[in-house]
């Protein structure tokens, strides 16, 4: 849970106090001289790759270079990628376990309360608390609550639904759901310096490097 490095995803950081960090925006990427027109603050710099091996290798080198507010985007899950950007653990299993325990307890004690106190009914001389007969519903409630916890827990940790996100501003980002791979160094990284980051990403041999506006 402590390892849940979620900070880079929280959208509210970018618009406000983080803008001074990204005080060196510039598009096109070719750095100086700075344009005089007012420019919108940057979310980060994005590199585009055309195959998963390059992306994973680039992500590893970026992490080794000391950048931490980084993220990869791919059209399908790549285990090596989230390991490469240093995202190893998720608290989802704990959430699901809690959901399952809540389901089991509420399922059993609902039946216990209703059958023993609220509406005791003599069925074939069985005891009011005929607990073996309560197990199937307890089981179903366990599964139901755990499944809800898995789905809504995953969505909540991912902060979905999220209609707007800066990465969608990147020109080629539509291909992230098809066959293209992206690596982003975010502007709120402690070691972020725009020109340095652009140079660094270019050294990773991407297809293209672009600025991502907030």
């Amino acid at each position: 849970m402590a390892d849940e490095r979620d900070k880079p995803e929280s959208g509210e950081n970018y618009g406000t106090d983080d803008t001074d960090v990204s005080a060196s925006p510039g598009h096109p990427v070719s750095a100086s001289p700075r344009p005089r027109v007012p420019v919108s603050p940057l979310y980060g710099v994005m590199a585009e790759f055309d195959n998963p091996n390059r992306l994973v290798a680039a992500a590893r080198r970026t992490y080794e270079a000391g950048y931490r507010r980084i993220n990869g985007y791919s059209p399908y899950p790549i285990e090596e990628l989230w390991e490469a950007i240093g995202f190893h653990h998720t608290s989802l299993p704990v959430i699901v376990l809690i959901g399952g325990i809540i389901g089991a307890l509420s399922g059993f004690f609902m039946q216990y309360y209703l059958a023993v106190f609220d509406y005791p009914l003599n069925v074939g001389g069985k005891p009011f608390n005929s607990w073996p007969s309560f197990i199937p519903i307890t089981f179903e409630m366990t599964i139901l609550c755990a499944a809800f916890a898995a789905v809504f827990g995953m969505l909540a940790l991912n902060k979905l639904p999220q209609p707007y996100h800066p990465v969608f501003n990147a020109p080629n980002f539509k291909l992230a759901s098809r066959d293209t791979f992206f690596l982003v160094i975010e502007a709120n990284d402690p070691r972020y310096d725009h020109d340095e980051v652009v140079e660094f990403l270019k050294s990773l041999e991407p297809k293209e490097v672009t600025d991502v506006e907030v």
Partner: peptide
């Protein structure tokens, strides 16, 4: 708003 983020994919 799915965007294929590596963190999202992991979860």
């Amino acid at each position: 708003g799915w965007r294929g983020s590596a963190r999202h994919w992991h979860r």
